[in-house]
């Protein structure tokens, strides 16, 4: 059983959504680590059109596997997970990438504010606290730009809007099941939360180096990424106020 007990965790119907695209080398360890942290987590691996054995390995480790017929990208994959969570009545969801860079041992950090009712979405940030993060110049530039832009829109200081290590409550699940951004979704999803007047909180976490595979974001792509996300944020400013959330 787990050594960690968080107040309120046991009462929640909780799900770990693990997006995975060709992660046969790391997905088993991710599932095992989540289960050893808390066996009460339903683990759903969204197998995003992998051509390797990601799906079979995940199933053999006791995870539920939702296999998309072809690669839809991280945004649509995560939305699939949120739809599953919504339809099956889960009221606490965490996103843990299948590549192993998110350490399930850090789950208490992102879970606590949701369990305490302080936030609807909690983001694990690499930059709060003292964890050093090395990366290419363009990526650092992009991350800075996003942090600055989203902080201005949200009216609160945010440091790591591209982090995919997140926890949401039922309201967040319902929102993301209905509408979740495509391509490079994390930054826009953060703004969506703010626009729907849900509460957002960042907590410091340590992230690991990727266990296997390599980041889907290469140098040239990161320029496209920056432009695309900034455009999306800009356009969002001209959209009319989002419809108020129905109570979950």
């Amino acid at each position: 059983m787990t050594g960690v007990t968080l107040p309120g965790l046991a009462e929640r119907r909780r799900i770990a959504i693990v997006p995975a695209f060709n992660e046969e080398g790391s997905v088993a360890a991710v599932i095992d680590e989540i289960h050893s942290f808390d066996p009460g987590f339903e683990i759903v691996v969204i197998n995003d059109g992998s051509s390797d054995r990601t799906g079979e390995i995940a199933r053999s480790r006791g995870a539920r596997v939702i296999s998309l017929p072809f690669n839809l990208g991280i945004g649509a994959a995560m939305q699939t997970g949120f739809r599953f969570a919504q339809e099956n009545g889960f009221n606490l969801a965490v996103q843990i990438d299948g590549d192993g860079q998110h350490d399930p041992a850090e789950l208490p950090a992102i879970l606590s504010p949701v369990l305490a009712g302080e936030a609807d979405l909690v983001i694990g940030s690499r930059f709060l606290g003292d964890g050093a993060f090395r990366s290419s110049f363009t990526r650092r530039l992009g991350i800075r730009l996003f942090a600055w832009t989203v902080s201005a829109i949200a009216g609160q200081r945010l440091t790591d809007t591209t982090s995919g290590f997140r926890a949401v409550n039922r309201r967040g699940i319902v929102l993301f099941a209905a509408d979740y951004p495509r391509d490079y979704p994390e930054v826009e999803a953060t703004v969506m939360i703010v626009k729907h007047r849900l509460r957002l909180k960042e907590v410091p976490v340590q992230m690991r180096e990727r266990a296997t595979g390599r980041s889907s974001i290469t140098a040239l792509r990161s320029v496209y990424y920056i432009a695309k996300v900034l455009l999306a944020l800009f356009v969002d400013l001209f959209r009319r106020g989002e419809a108020p959330m129905e109570d979950a």
Partner: peptide, 8 residues
């Protein structure tokens, strides 16, 4: 595609 995967 999402609906199909969920149904499967």
């Amino acid at each position: 595609a999402q609906r199909l995967a969920l149904l499967e």
